[in-house]
C-alpha cells in the first residue's frame, strides 16, 4: 500500500518530532499539542479541554510559548496542532506571569472551588488581589468557571441542548432557558461528569433524578421490571435503546443492565439445557 493510500484511508498519520522544554517527543502530525503533553505527563494546567470535544480555547490556562523564527509566541496548547520541529516552552517567565494573574482571576471567580484552589496552589498562587465573587443564589455554588464543558457535552455529545449560556460578559451563567425546568434534559449526568470544578450537582431521589444546578429539573427514572430498582433516567434509556440494532426484546429492554445480563444468561442456559433443571 502506498503512503497516499494509507493517508487517504485516514489510518496512519505522519509521525513528527516536537521539542517540549528541551526534550524531544514523538507525536502524530496535527495532533493537539495539549494532548501530546497530557500523554507525556508534562504539566500544563487546563480546565476547558476535553478530548472528545472540538478545541474551545476558553480557559487560557494552557498557554505556552511556541518558538517561531527565534521569537517566542504565546498560544493555547489546546488549539495548537503539532508540526514537525515544533519547539515549545511551557514555563517561560511570560507564561508564568500571565498564568498567575489568570489563577488569581479564577480564585476570585470561583472562590468555593477546592479544585481551583488546589490547582492554583500547585502553580504557586494561593491568594487573589481581586474581589471574590460570592453569590448566595448561585446554583453552581460559586464554583463555576464557565469553561463550557457541560454546555458542549449536553449539546455536542448528547444532542440534548438542555443547558446553555445565559447573558454575556461578566454576567454569563450556565443554566436552562429562562431558568425553567428543562423538558429536554435527558438526566444523563454528562454535565456532572465533565465539570472540572465539581460545580454541577444532581441527586437521585427514589423515582426521579433532580438536576439541582439546572433549575431543579426533575427527570423520571426507569424502574427495572425484574428487581424493581430505579436504574437510569427514562428519557436516557429510551434514547439509548432507540440506537440499538437490532432492537432488544421488550421484556429485556425493560430491565436494568444487571438483570438484563442475568436474563440473557438464563435464557441461553435454558436453550442449551432444553429446560431441564
Amino acid at each position: 500500500m502506498t503512503h497516499e493510500e494509507v493517508s487517504s484511508m485516514g489510518t496512519a498519520a505522519k509521525l513528527v518530532t516536537v521539542t517540549i522544554n528541551g526534550k524531544k517527543y514523538g507525536a502524530d502530525e496535527d495532533e493537539i499539542l495539549l494532548s501530546v503533553a497530557v500523554r507525556e505527563k508534562i504539566a500544563i494546567p487546563h480546565l476547558c479541554y476535553e478530548a472528545s470535544l472540538d478545541p474551545y480555547g476558553a480557559c487560557r490556562l494552557c498557554m505556552v510559548e511556541v518558538v517561531r523564527h527565534g521569537k517566542r509566541e504565546m498560544v493555547t496548547s489546546c488549539t495548537t496542532r503539532v508540526t514537525d520541529g515544533l519547539e515549545v516552552v511551557t514555563d517561560g517567565p511570560e507564561v508564568v506571569k500571565h498564568r498567575s494573574i489568570l489563577f488569581e482571576l479564577y480564585l476570585a471567580e470561583a472562590p468555593k472551588s477546592e479544585v481551583i484552589k488546589a490547582m492554583a496552589a500547585r502553580y504557586g498562587v494561593t491568594k487573589t488581589r481581586f474581589l471574590k465573587k460570592i453569590d448566595t443564589t448561585d446554583s453552581l455554588g460559586n464554583k463555576c468557571i464557565l469553561c463550557g464543558l457541560c454546555v458542549r457535552a449536553c449539546n455536542e455529545l448528547m444532542g440534548a441542548g438542555a443547558i446553555g449560556f445565559v447573558n454575556r460578559g461578566p454576567y454569563t451563567v450556565v443554566n436552562t432557558p429562562y431558568f425553567e425546568a428543562s423538558r429536554d434534559c435527558l438526566g444523563c449526568g454528562a454535565c456532572v461528569k465533565v465539570c472540572p470544578t465539581n460545580a454541577v450537582e444532581m441527586e437521585d431521589q427514589k423515582n426521579e433524578r433532580i438536576m439541582k444546578s439546572w433549575s431543579n429539573t426533575r427527570v423520571p427514572l426507569a424502574q427495572c421490571d425484574c428487581c424493581g430498582r430505579y436504574y437510569a433516567p427514562k428519557a436516557l434509556a429510551a434514547t439509548i435503546l432507540a440506537r440499538v440494532t437490532p432492537s432488544l426484546k421488550e421484556e429485556i429492554a425493560r430491565c436494568c443492565p444487571e438483570c438484563r445480563g442475568k436474563l440473557i444468561a438464563k435464557k441461553e442456559i435454558l436453550a442449551k439445557t432444553g429446560g431441564a433443571r
Partner: peptide
C-alpha cells in the same frame, strides 16, 4: 468593553470586570 465581552474566555470576561472595579 466589559459590557460587550461575550464572556467566553476568562481574561476578557473576568479581567475586564476587575479592571473596571
Amino acid at each position: 468593553a466589559t459590557g460587550e465581552s461575550c464572556g467566553k474566555c476568562v481574561p476578557c470576561r473576568e479581567g475586564l470586570k476587575h479592571a473596571l472595579l
